[in-house]
Amino acid sequence: MKIVKAENLEYEYVKLDEDGKVESTLKAVDGVNLDVEAGDFIAILGHNGSGKSTLAKHINAILVPTEGTLYVDGKDTKDPDKLWEIRQTAGMVFQNPDNQIIGTIVDEDVAFGPENMGVPKEEIWRRVEKSLKSVGMWEYRSHSPNKLSGGQKQRVAIAGVVAMQPKCIVLDEPTAMLDPNGRREVIRTVMELNRQEKVTVILITHYMEEVIYADKVIVMDEGKVVMQGTPREIFSQVEKLKSLRLDVPQVTLLAHELRKSGLDLPEGILSIEELTAALEQCRAGKA
């Protein structure tokens, strides 16, 4: 079952002058075809302005396509009667946690989503408990959100989406404003939701290290999908990624440089453990 399916998706931003006439248009998404299987962990990479966020906003129908079609769990996002179902199927988490938290107490904030959906009261509190536990924030349920760290706030924002029981969560640079610990907390939370609750995850990020656990990586440039594959396939192409204003994890780059210096290492090394193991082998081969 495809949870998200894009067919020749195009989106144009239209700029109007003072008289309401079209001054210029910008095609932010240009002919994207995409298949996301339910339960997948997908990462989207691309430089600023490559169309990642515009694409992401289609998945819960904040934007609807100018041309082409986007299906979320089989429903066409252009169908206004399906809007609320689509938004319950696909939840979104944004970059700045401060813009997403509205409650004065953590558990009230998380309850906001299901409350709006008309979920019965007992069920709401059951969901709040479950989702706060799933992001590791249950013990903070009676705290004020503005006393939390960035990573904690972002996990509360994720719990707020989880409480609506979406099949799919789209996260648009959720770690851009966080310190290393906060980034680790959020990524661990997202991976657990994916593995244990089988929630489909679509993660947009500029941190290459966060991408290595994804099932599939999609690279965008000028509104088009220009690369697609496993993290290992994508990060084996160091030079191509650099030409797209992107990067690879620091260990991958180190392995790439060592290869260039003549060491017999495989391409597409993704983690510290992989690199040290490969270096051990390399040294044993030499001895």
Binding site: H47, Q95, M177, M208, R245, L246
Partner: peptide, 9 residues
Amino acid sequence: TAGLDPRGR
């Protein structure tokens, strides 16, 4: 550099 792509950074 928060929020910038790798090249921008």
